[in-house]
Design a protein around this nucleic acid. Structure first.
Lengths: 255, 255
DNA sequence: GCAAGGCGCATTGTACACAAGCCAGAGTGC
DNA sequence: GCACTCTGGCTTGTGTACAATGCGCCTTGC
């Protein structure tokens, strides 16, 4: 109960996923990271008071951070009933991926035109970081950095509305990956990211888009969206019991 | 100072642009509408306390509404310095329009596949309303309804992320139109909207997309994005003075 | 007369106290 | 024994007080 973070002033400046300095940015970043790293499972209730104690700030700050997370779709805000970590359904996941395809295609085309040398340099650096995370076996950081790569790519496209949309899509994608990714953890391969940068640097739009679409295919295929791992639709979960009554319930179904 | 609205409980349910019932929705809708109808000019300061008095609510509610408006890009939130009505630059306007083209294309293609009979019915009804507003000469309502048409179209496309992005884009577009539209006020012609619905109903994707792109061209061409009507770049504003010094300043330049 | 510095006011940022709304559990009636 | 109701506690929603920050005006020196 009494475990509380440090005074929390500018603790995460340039640390972890933190933005600049204000308190809600810090809270936002920490919660977001916890969700990505699955320390907060989908469906988990996010009590305002509890979070306030943990971070050593008042509910006002927490509330703003939650509102922001809700805007990006990684948290569900239910009026009068508090916030929970979003648990996107298969249908929602499909919609996010469809939207991402559209946006990534546009971003790639724009990046080929507008990316500066500095953009490309930063992109390469991010892929390095990503590779390092995976070799360290830090899955959460890997997912996050992979997302930040795509976000940085959007920035290279130099279109503010697309950047903000991409931010939301990447957040949701990360959550979906964390929730649905099947066993093999070799996702979002940094090789593909590197090739993509090469194509952009060569200003080869067709090739870049081709690579990006291929990349999206890979991400898609790594998820098992066909069979939901855990559903809140009781009928769906127990559908196998409805016909052959005799079957015994699964012994260790992790709900 | 003392002019205040009615108790404001559920006053705008089904009225004007109001959503369901909560207070911040009402405040949000009213401010948004005021911006669209240019009763609030770009750059106007939106004081929390003043708005609170006007709407008869505390700053808490106002703050949420402003935050939401800021998320949609029609209000600019400057830390420690309050909120102002956004005044998109020409460059920002171009970016919004570019993004909209991309999204409208995708939405149209999806709507051709997914629009239900009921969707089409509602769309037709909205075009009717739009036409009525214009014949009444209600410019603000016209812009708003025209935007709502495009938003409804996004809903017909059945993709949640795209809907939310479209909402933001439409809001910003409306603001841009209000700010930049040149004299002739025959914008966003409902004829084009009607034809678009026909093409969608006929499930003719190519034709629908063609019409939509044409529609976007029309909107673009009605704006004079080349010469900014009012700029905050002093060098740009007074560039004509920099060469021929003798010129006298304009007598009644409204800054 | 003009520029720089300091002070006071106004406005936003944060925390907290109170009100309102859900949810769970105990109790009761059928 | 089951279901329904009522109540108590807990969580969120809202208003408000206080702190901090930024801005404009005034003074003062040159």
């Amino acid at each position: 109960m009494n475990e509380q973070l440090q005074p929390l002033k500018k603790q995460s400046r340039s640390g972890k996923a933190g933005r600049s300095g204000t308190q809600d940015d810090i809270v936002y970043a920490h919660i977001f990271e916890a969700i990505l790293e699955q320390r907060l499972a989908p469906g988990t209730k996010l009590s305002e008071e509890a979070l306030g104690e943990i971070f050593g700030v008042s509910r006002t700050i927490i509330r703003r951070a939650l509102s922001r997370l809700a805007h990006e779709g990684v948290v569900l805000l239910r009026p009068n009933r508090g916030a929970v970590v979003a648990s996107p359904s298969v249908e929602e996941a499909r919609q996010v991926f469809l939207a991402r395809r559209l946006v990534e295609k546009a971003i790639t085309e724009l990046a080929v035109v507008h990316a500066t040398a500095d953009d490309l340099l930063q992109l390469r650096k991010m892929v390095q970081d990503e590779r390092d995370s995976f070799s360290r076996g830090d899955r959460g950081a890997g997912i996050r950095l992979s997302g930040e790569f795509h976000l940085k790519l959007a920035e290279a496209a130099k279109n503010a509305p697309l950047i903000s949309f991409q931010r939301s899509l990447v957040s949701q994608t990360s959550l979906i990956i964390a929730q649905y990714e099947s066993g093999n953890r070799s996702h979002c391969s940094y090789d593909e990211h590197m090739q993509l940068i090469d194509a952009i640097e060569a200003r080869d739009a067709a090739q870049a888009v081709h690579l990006m679409m291929h990349h999206m295919d890979h991400i898609d295929s790594k998820l098992n969206l066909d069979e939901e791992s855990a559903s809140d639709d009781l009928h769906a979960v127990f559908s196998h019991l409805l016909q052959t009554k005799g079957k015994s319930p699964r012994p260790a179904a992790k709900l």
